[in-house]
């Protein structure tokens, strides 16, 4: 075949592929949002689910997802900062550093169901925390931590070298240089990366089935103690999240409006991820402007 014809055919095929993908992807988004909005209203977002009849909401599930996210971040942010700082600033070229990097690679590509199994054995059984928010948060930590360590390391590495030199050349210790000079410059990148990683935690389900559990007690939203079993804040109570709820109503649910509930819950999940994405982009730009402009 002559090269000109091949070129024309190839271009046509590429256009077709692009068109196909755009339509599938946009179709998917439109489908989720269109169906979801038919179900979403204030009552749906705030009221508890039903077990047998139609009309249940997703209030506790939404709260559980958010609470689990917050708890996970409380655990992972300090650890992620520490690990990222070590790799960017201290790590020598040796076997320990290689082992840390290999661990990051393994943990971030582990199937989430395997993380769930690990959580079931260690946090639920060995530690004796049972199906609980704490067990769930620890399981989520397992794959959020490597992401965060990477984000922190990359953000620190992108800080201009001269910043570090200037500080050290004034007799300021390495540790203070890291905390007071490098981290503030790296902060926008760290925050953007953390928000994006949060979107992933928010939608995770497989790792939570056997750690945070598939049920939620009847929460009493006027009880904010950390210890009573019906308090929303009690970290030792089981907590079904939004993503787990979508899976459960579809596979073992008995409610007649499973489809509509899953529609609504899916749309809320997608909107949240969308929100995290846009917010991260906007925030990155905003803080960059704050730092550079007067």
């Amino acid at each position: 075949m002559n090269p000109k014809t091949t070129d024309r055919i190839a271009t046509f095929v590429l256009y077709t592929i692009a068109f196909l993908i755009v339509s599938v992807l946009f179709g998917l988004l439109a489908y989720i949002l269109y169906h979801g909005f038919q179900r979403i209203d204030l009552q749906f977002i705030t009221s508890p689910p039903e077990t047998m009849k139609a009309g249940g909401g997703i209030g506790p599930q939404l709260f559980n997802s958010l609470y689990l996210l917050v708890l996970t971040l409380i655990i992972t942010i300090p650890l992620g900062l520490g690990g990222g700082i070590y790799l960017a600033e201290y790590a020598p070229k040796n076997k320990v550093t290689d082992a840390i990097r290999l661990s990051i690679e393994v943990l971030s590509s582990l199937p989430s169901i395997v993380v769930g199994l690990f959580g079931l054995m260690v946090f639920v059984n060995v530690m004796g925390w049972g199906f609980s928010i704490l067990s769930g948060a620890c399981a989520l930590t397992v794959f959020n931590l490597p992401l965060l360590v990477r984000v922190v390391e990359e953000s620190l590495r992108s800080v201009p070298r001269e910043q570090k030199e200037a500080s050290l050349a004034m007799g300021i210790s390495h540790w203070t240089t890291i905390r007071k000079v490098l981290l503030p410059v790296a902060l926008p990148g760290i925050i953007t990366g953390t928000i994006l990683a949060s979107g992933r935690i928010f939608g995770e389900a497989a790792a939570l089935l056997f750690t945070a559990g598939m049920s939620s007690p009847d929460l009493n939203f006027s009880d904010w103690s950390f210890t009573t079993p019906v308090s929303p804040l009690n970290p030792f109570r089981p907590a079904e999240t939004l993503a787990v709820h979508i899976w459960k109503v579809n596979s073992e649910g008995l409610i007649p409006d499973a489809r509509a509930v899953a529609d609504g819950a899916s749309a809320i999940l997608v909107l949240t991820v969308l929100f995290f994405n846009l917010f991260a982009r906007w925030f990155g730009r905003w803080i960059y402007k704050r730092l550079t402009a007067s």
Binding site: R200, A243, V244, I246, W247, N250, L269, V270
Partner: peptide
Amino acid sequence: LLVGIPSVVYGF
């Protein structure tokens, strides 16, 4: 954006 969509949503 789609990289970040939860897999349960794809399943559903």
